[in-house]
Amino acid sequence: MTVLEVKNLTHTYSGNTPFINDAVSRVSFSAEKGEIIGIIGHTGSGKSTLVQHLNGLLKPTEGEVFVDGENIWDNPKEIRKIRSKVGLVFQYPEYQLFEETVYADIAFGPKNMGLAGDELKKRVLDTCRLIGVKDEYLEKSPFDLSGGEKRRVAIAGVMAMKPEVIVFDEPTAGLDPAGRESVMKIIHDYRQAVGATVIIISHSMEDMALLADKLLVMNKGSLEMFDTVENVFLNGDRLREIGLNVPIVTRVFYELKAAGIPVPDNVFTVSRAVEVLKGIKAGERGA
C-alpha cells in the first residue's frame, strides 16, 4: 500500500535574487507502508529541502505530494493535520526542547493534535515505554539530561504524535557509538510497533546498508537513483562521481577481488561479509 507519493516535485528558491536555482528539481518517488527508505546525497544536494515538503513545511513550486492518496495542498488550511501524519525529526532535534519537564515536552505534539486528559497521558507514557525513557525521567527538566538522552526525548516528542510516516534528518549526527546505536534501535522499535514508513537522511553508507530497504540518491537537486540498496551500491563508480561511496566493507571486498580472491560484489554489511568469508574458508578446506 502506497502511503506517500511525490510527483514531479520542484522547489525554486528565488526571492528577489537574480540567481534562480532549483533546490529540488522534478523529483518523483513513492513509499510503501512499513518501508525504510534512506536518502543519501552530497551536502547541498537538496535532501533537507526535499523532506520539508513531505509534511508541508515547504510548498512545492511545482508538483504534488500525496499522503494516503490525498494531495496535501488540496486544503491549505488543514496542513497542520498532515504534520501529525508525517512526522519530521530535524537535525539536532534536542535544540527544540523547551518545556519544564520531559513529560510536558513529549506531550507538546499530541496536545497540538487536540489530545487531552487520559488519552494524552496514555499516548505520552506509551511512547516513553516504547523508546525506553524511564518513568523517573518524566519529571526531570530536559536540560538536565545527557546529549544522547536529550536526543531520544526530542525524537519521542515527534513519535508521540504517532505519524504513519516518520522522517529523520541525520538522526545520529554528533552522537557517540552507544548513542547512535540507541537512536537506531528506537527508530527500529517504533517502526515495528506502529508499522510506520521510515525515511532517513544519512551520510553513513554503513547504517544505510544495515537499515534501509530502498535508497534514494540525490545529486544537485535531482533524483539520481531510487532503487533497492543492492542495486544502488552496485553502482559504486557513479556514487563516487557524485561525491558518495559504497560501505567500507564493500570497498574491502573490491580490493579482495582485485587481488584475485573470488568474492561477490554484493557485500554491504559486516555480517554478510563474515558469512561470505566463512563460506570461502570452508570451501578451501573442502578443496
Binding site: 501529525s84 512526522g87 527544540q96 505534539g109
Partner: peptide
C-alpha cells in the same frame, strides 16, 4: 527559522 520549522513539525500553530 530552524526552531520554528521544528515546532511547526510538532504541530505548533
Amino acid at each position: 527559522e530552524k526552531i520554528m520549522n521544528a515546532q511547526k513539525a510538532r504541530g505548533a500553530d
